[in-house]
Design a binder for these strands. Structure first.
Lengths: 345, 345
DNA sequence: CTGAAAGCGCTTACAG
DNA sequence: CTGAAAGCGCTTACAG
């Protein structure tokens, strides 16, 4: 019996079981490779010594880390917490740990994705940040580790990495159709952040569909935003100052929709009677607003799960020729009070 | 020059620089230990070979991992994302990685805190979960690693581990005083989860202070909750069904306050005129509700930062006799529309 | 200031 | 089915 804080090594187990360290290793990682007798002796010795394999030693020997890294633009942004939760669900079940890093944290040394592999920090990377520097991504390809990196929620043009994301285009069309069905003739949009790849997708698809359905979309009704509450409130100011206002607004995020709602309600505008509002995401609070927020639901947990599954498959079979993989997760319109009841036909 | 995806080892650098691996190691980790000449040769060879030290090898040799683990009850709960952000800020600056694990995820194997150290998974642990099994915590002490574990936000009775958390008692008193100043005579409380250690603190301190200030607090006005939106909405139902209602409510979380607000507004109750409302946390949306939510602000990022700092200090000096450390982070009342203007004196 | 050598704790061909 | 031995890639006493 060893003293409590002197951890048992594999050699201690081998001695206690009267076998070699090789047999201990096999009994633990590949039980069918050893005789019943050996296996039982080892198991008992493990119990007795409290043995647990040392990760660093195993990692060094096997050239794996058993971890995957999630690169997140802003850890304090709750949007990502559900995606991480999905990643965690499948990764932890597969025995992988999850590392998180904040790519916008100034004090963090800039992360070069390829370095993650040369440093032996993680076996794979999930990128949730659409703004990663292109060179950083290119280096992944240069080092032949492109099968060990996937995008989730975001993607990047020209970098042929796998991407798991919502059906943003369909979400935008659903929003346009819903506003049309509610009888609106003039509609506007609050955009995502400039330079974000999601922004043109949601905007252009919404505008196109809205116009196809016969609704007017003036350029001045396309308002800038950055996904955050404050930019939604600012958009409300802009709209309130207009002589001719749209009667329906599609916001590229729920948070902006809520900021916008605050701005309108504070000015005494009635929702949905005077202006109807659709968000994007379906954050938890959306259902509990007054009026509750109609929105396009993104299944963020599912995106995290699928991304982790895709990554794990590639890690376990890195040499397979993975086709250019783009997984689009369906979205869903959730009708609530902010767009009001559909007109009776 | 090696082929691109054949990573350079320390021996490759040593050869390129014409020195021993020991000198390479020293030049990199402790530059003042080697001559200028050696240092420059090494640096140049590192540049040339693209060398980066392998983590697993270093970890095995130094018996450290360079990582800290955050144990989180529910990763999809946005409450924790800001705390993690604070942890990340200080940890990454100190060169540590952050591992996250969801303690409520059923598919995750139950985590025994002491195993984190014997497995060599992390050098320290920050527990954000008030419900960790006591045995799991006890084992930490049994293995002498109690200097490598801290609580953040939560704490546990009888386990003498360091804890960094908000001044919950003061927050509750601030809420009571604010309601008294606003002229309320009858007040109630929506509680946190049963069995959570925060729950009696916030409740009892609020009730005590409220009564001391001459306000009535009936037992039936103390409503159950679990920090979530739905339980706040349920509390609204309960209140609405009462003949005699309190005129002021202190909710143990913002989320419950928002669910409660929805219930009242939907029933046509005016806030703050008929019922005033105070939350706890100051989540981002609180300022953007209509009416905006008066609340007790918790500095969650700061809690994360302090917890990480305290943990890192202990990791770097584990044998020092750390006093029983309880760091209480101040809270602040943020007055908004849901409690209305203070009456003019 | 420097290098040769040991060793961290595993896993896995290899030989039997 | 089993064991002896090599080796993953570092760091650090030790000796000079």
């Amino acid at each position: 019996m060893k003293s409590p804080n002197q951890r048992a090594r594999i050699l201690d187990v081998a001695r206690a079981a009267g076998v070699s360290t090789a047999s201990v290793s096999r009994a633990l990682s590949n039980p069918s490779q050893v005789s019943d007798e050996t296996r039982e002796a080892v198991l008992q010795a493990v119990e007795q010594t409290g043995y647990r394999a040392n990760r660093a030693a195993r990692n060094l020997r096997t050239q794996k880390t058993g971890a995957i890294l999630a690169l997140i633009p802003n850890l304090s942004n709750p949007f990502f917490s559900q995606v991480i939760s999905g990643i965690e669900q499948v990764a932890s079940q597969a025995g992988y740990s999850i590392l998180v890093a904040d790519t916008e944290n100034q004090s963090t040394p800039k992360i070069h994705v390829a370095d993650v592999f040369t440093d032996g920090i993680a076996d794979g990377v999930i990128i949730l940040d659409g703004f990663m520097e292109p060179e950083s991504i290119e280096s992944v390809r240069a080092t032949g580790s492109e099968n060990l990196v996937v995008y989730a929620c975001e993607w990047a043009e020209s970098v042929g990495l796998p991407s798991i994301r919502s059906d943003n285009a369909e979400g935008a069309r659903l929003a346009a159709r819903h506003l049309a069905e509610c009888g609106h003739k003039r509609v506007g949009h609050i955009c995502g952040p400039k330079d974000n790849i999601l922004t043109p997708t949601r905007r252009d698809e919404f505008v196109k569909e809205a116009r196809a359905l016969g609704m007017e979309v003036r350029d001045e009704w396309i308002l800038p935003g950055d996904f955050r509450l404050a930019s939604g409130a600012a958009a409300a100011e802009t709209i309130l100052a207009m002589d001719q206002r749209p009667t329906g607004i599609f916001s590229a995020s729920d948070m902006m929709a809520l900021g916008f709602m605050k701005g309108l309600l504070a000015a005494g505008i009635k929702i949905p009677e005077e202006i109807a509002l659709i968000g994007f995401d379906d954050v938890a609070i959306a259902a509990y607003m007054h009026p509750s927020l109609t929105t396009i639901r993104q299944n963020r947990v599912e995106i995290g799960r699928i991304a982790a599954k895709a990554l794990l498959e590639r890690i376990q079979n890195p040499n397979k020729d993975w086709e250019h993989f783009q997984h689009i997760v369906p979205v869903e319109l959730v009708g609530r009070e902010s767009t009001g009841p559909l007109p009776q036909k």
